[in-house]
Structures are given as structure tokens and as C-alpha cells.
Amino acid sequence: MLQQFPEAEWDEAAGAIIAPLGQALAVAEWLLGQGVDYCSNVTGVDYLEREVKEKVTGEDGKMETVTRTIPSRMDVVYHLYSMQKQTGPLVLKQRTNREQPQVQSLTPVWRSCELQEREVYDLFGVDFTGHPDQRRILMWDEFEGHPMRKDYTEPFDYEWEPTPHNEILDKHHRGKVIV
């Protein structure tokens, strides 16, 4: 596979293939020709920009702590299986930016992506080019925002209540107060 598509990356930590930008559909069609006929799971993953502290051994042999910034990104993950050969899973990822995420829809290749990509569009706001019917699926049509994103703020609809639910009380103290 990596020979066929030299730009595809292999992500060792996740055990996944990252499809080259704009070529996901070609990769998927090639995979389908290889007998990967069943797309099980489609989902999005939202990565915020974050800083990690790493310990690096410097040139003089001393341990140093280096702060590195990992840029934000949005992944769309496909779990693929082959029903003919009974093998799998093969994890395929499409990587895009967070601000205006746009990936290629794989619905023309595997029909099972249809509803799941709609769900990713609804909850993560990823735009799938080539999707036959891209609408909100779980939330109502007038809804604004994409609730599964990590920085989504929920509507404040808690009121004070005499319970020991600490988190709710915390939320109450942090947010508005409905008396």
C-alpha cells in the first residue's frame, strides 16, 4: 500500500495509515479493489492545540525539559475490514485542519459511511466533499455549533438544587446564577 501511494504515512503509535491530502478517495478505491469491502466504523477526533513537555538529553549529556507545541488538527478515522478474506482491521485516517475541516467523502466507495459521515458533520463540523446528503442528523436543524468538539461550551441550563452533585454545584458557581 505504501508503495502504491508513496505520500501515505504510517502512524506507528496509532497503528493507522494517514491518507495523503486529497487522495483519500483514490486510496479507498484501491483498497476496495484489494478486497477491503467492509467499512465498519467512521468517526472524527478533535485535537486541540496543546503543549507537551518532553525530557531531551542535550549535547552535553544533561536532561532538559523542552516544551513543544503540537498544532491542532481534526482526524476522520475509518476502520476497515475484509469480509472475503476475514481480515482486519485496517485503520485509515484523513487529517485536516480544525478551523475549516474538509475531507473527501468515502460514501461512494463504502455505503456504510453515509450516515456516519453525516454524524461526523453534525457533531464535529467536518465538511465531506462528495457526500450525497450532508445534513445534520442528531441535533435539530437550527442548531449552532458542533457539540463533540473539545472546546464546545454547553448551554447553561442548570439551576441550584439541593443535591450533593459537586460538579453541578461547581458549574453553578462558575457560571451564571439562577436564583
Binding site: D37, Y38, C39, S40, M83, Q86, W110, R111, S112, E114
Partner: peptide, 25 residues
């Protein structure tokens, strides 16, 4: 054909003629 492409699983897939059972696979 459609059942496999659409990711149908379980008894519904097996009723369409594909004997795919994860307990076996």
C-alpha cells in the same frame, strides 16, 4: 452486495447470504 457495502452486520447480513460472524472471525 448492498448489505456488505452498507456495513450491515449481524442477523440481517446473514439473512442476505453472507456468513460473517465475529464470534467465528
Amino acid at each position: 452486495e448492498l448489505a456488505i457495502s452498507a456495513g450491515i452486520t449481524g442477523p440481517m447480513l446473514r439473512a442476505s447470504g453472507e456468513s460473517y460472524d465475529i464470534r467465528k472471525v
